[in-house]
Design a binder for these strands. Structure first.
Lengths: 409, 409
DNA sequence: TAAGTTTGCAAGAGAGGAACACAAACGTTG
DNA sequence: CAACGTTTGTGTTCCTCTCTTGCAAACTTA
């Protein structure tokens, strides 16, 4: 045999696990569903759904509620909903000027959250790990059980397999073994998944925001750097090591300004926050307030601010055209800074996009601002932490987070 | 329920179909495997493999041969191989200067093939459909059964769902309903799948060429235009309508030369065949011979040819850096013209790539020329045509292509 | 009260797993 | 050089798991 094992064979047990997964995932992603909804969703028979739902109810993952009377004929179908208290995860985001954590229950309910604003440049790995430990401990005191998983979104290039942050230029990090360090500091015996902040922002928008049900999405998230993520054909575009999506360092103007990454003419040098602020005559580190000022001044008629927005909008369109031609998404979501300036730059951006994107891909794409705003990466990280449970709920039947509550209920 | 059916439930029948698929796909993609290889591949038990293989043998899809004596201890295991005569497909490629067709049997054996060279510009849809009909009829006379599927690779932007060629600038086509036209002309009652030539070249390299077993691959195929395809995380990157991979029209030099597509500074204007030939002082339409001449002259010391290759190599590196940062592939395959110039441009291309690709993605990527050469798109198209059979062999048990041969055997 | 929809239960069918006996080839050993 | 044990693999039977089928009962609306 030329290669190792690739496609594992299926067995009856696989079927059962896949069906449990389909139900739990359906309830988590779509909210409460009646049994007959589940029949329609899965294509299984009523008997099978009944058995599966009962199994999940016994395991505490699903709560069945009496049927609602909806005015439709026929016997009412009991409503199944995910039990948000049965499985909790911790979602964390490490951004350039703040750190946030949230406890999210199965079904997507945020049970507790907290954020620490931090001045830029003060985010050494030691400090961040200490801050996260503190945040987490205070949050966990407010909920009655430990999480089943931890997800971390960090503004840097991350290797998914072991949580190594290869580089996070805006945090000043190089090769930080964040996964190991957090595991030691938090001392929670649960898996920690670390991923790029843009990938997690996209996951949040895909599950809970502007991209629900859209299987070909591109997400741009510009703050200090410009990051991005994509879901194409329903699959996250993470690349071989999870390093993908560094769209900020796509060369769009190779003779242009030199970039922190050592190259020149990277997209980020034209559409990043620093570019906008500098062009508008503000200090490049004036952050979110600076961007708001530019928008305000441009609206008030200041030509320099308007020209800065025009420049960014034009290059936004140029870069998007390339990405649209390569990836052919159905939807482009602009997050963070680019979401805020979307309305102001839309005409010039779309003009450039129309001119440069091939007609066929252009016809099918819409560009919209993100809907989730601040905290999206943490929500996405929480979704990432739920993934093992959603993929195989049966593996979590034993580890009842709330065994006492379940027993007394 | 907020949306329609997405994730179909699994049933025992699904398991059986999936396992049959795993075996047929394994034999098709990897070649003959012993029963014990299949046990290792799938993780199923000997009993299950035995039953599944016997079922496939009865259906004629698999031939079992006596064990080979390999000098290894233990009882020899019978070898199962795909029966190349049980299921045939027709793979067709429509390129800018030739049309080719091949009959491929299960397992990937080419049973017959033929190519028509055509001067550029003489490829109207009518003419192409007529040529294909003629090619196909003559090929089919040489094999004893009709194909179970037809795959077509065409150098243009294609909508997969219905085989509409939205645009094929190098053929001069606009909105050609190639799927419908071929279905009428060929009058074979089998599915016709139409796809982009670069996507099919990549599929061929992934199944039979330089990318076997590599799940994150980027493929560049430059002839008149520059096309590309990618497989990321094992999934083909086709985008929402199958329009993805138009990497030739990624803006890399927005103030640069104007492009046929209406934009300016597209990658294709810097690294396309026309750019190389023009820079070398040859007519832009001197085609493959022109490229060979440039390579020859540069090797002989002609400075103008060397400078042309340098230019193309440099911009190849620039564009690849962007794609590598965005997609994080493990392997980049240069096909067609770029495969031929690979050796000549490698140092300058890799220098630019080193300078511009982020370190993490760059560390994991290798750039190599394609191994399949001319005819790769047709082979990929044949693989595409096999896909329904590989995904569910049981669905083809009834339609025995060779029922008479099977009966007499 | 009739029609329509859904639940609940028991029997049935499909598929792979586990265990045992047996077979074939290799290498060692007397 | 032949007999032996070891290793690897086949063939068969019985078992278990899981979903489907079919029927009766429950519930709501019109």
């Amino acid at each position: 045999m030329r290669q190792g094992r690739v496609d594992i064979g299926q067995r009856s047990e696989t079927v059962h696990r896949a069906n449990l997964s389909a139900i739990v995932r359906g309830l988590h992603e779509r909210g409460p569903l009646s049994r007959s909804d589940l029949v329609a969703l899965t294509g299984l028979t009523r008997s099978a759904i009944r058995a599966l739902v009962c199994e999940l109810v016994d395991a505490g993952m699903v709560i069945e509620e009496p049927a609602l009377r909806l005015g439709t004929p026929g016997r009412p179908s009991p409503i199944a909903r995910a039990n948000p208290r049965r499985a909790l995860v911790l979602g964390i985001e490490i951004m350039v000027d703040s750190i946030a954590a949230a406890i999210v229950g199965l079904g997507g309910v945020t049970l507790a959250e907290s954020r620490l604003e931090r001045p830029r440049g003060s985010l050494s790995p030691d400090r961040v790990v200490a801050d996260i430990t503190e945040l987490t401990e205070s949050l966990l005191r407010r909920v009655p059980a430990p999480p089943i998983g931890i997800g971390v979104a960090v503004a840097g290039v991350v290797r998914r397999s072991d949580g190594l942050v290869w580089a996070a230029p805006n945090l000043g990090w190089v090769e930080v073994a964040l996964g190991d360090r957090l595991a030691r500091a938090l001392a929670l015996e649960v898996p920690i998944s670390i991923a790029n902040d843009a990938d997690m922002g996209l996951l949040a928008e895909h599950r809970r925001g502007a991209a629900i049900g859209v299987n070909d999405v591109l997400y741009i998230s510009g703050e200090v750097g410009v990051g991005g993520g994509a879901i194409i054909g329903g699959h996250a575009l993470t690349g071989v090591a999870g390093y993908g999506g560094e769209i900020g360092h796509m060369p769009v103007n190779p003779g242009g300004k030199s970039c922190r990454c050592g190259s020149s003419g990277c997209w980020e040098t034209e559409v990043g926050e620093g570019a906008l602020l500098t062009l508008a005559g503000l200090p490049p580190d004036s952050g979110r307030e600076g961007v708001e000022a530019v928008l305000r001044d441009a609206a008030a008629g200041d030509p320099r601010s308007a020209a800065a927005l025009d420049h960014v909008g034009r290059w936004l369109g140029i870069g998007l055209a390339g990405l649209v031609n390569v990836l052919n998404p159905q939807l482009v979501i602009l997050g963070a800074m680019h979401g805020r300036i979307h309305a102001a730059v839309r005409p010039v951006m779309e003009g450039e996009l129309d001119r440069r994107a091939l007609r066929a891909p252009r016809d099918s794409v819409h560009v919209v601002p993100a809907t989730l705003g601040v905290g999206a990466p943490a929500r996405g990280a929480a979704e990432l932490a739920f993934e093992p449970l959603l993929a195989d709920p049966a593996a979590f039947f034993g580890s009842a987070a709330f065994s006492t509550q379940l027993a007394s209920a």
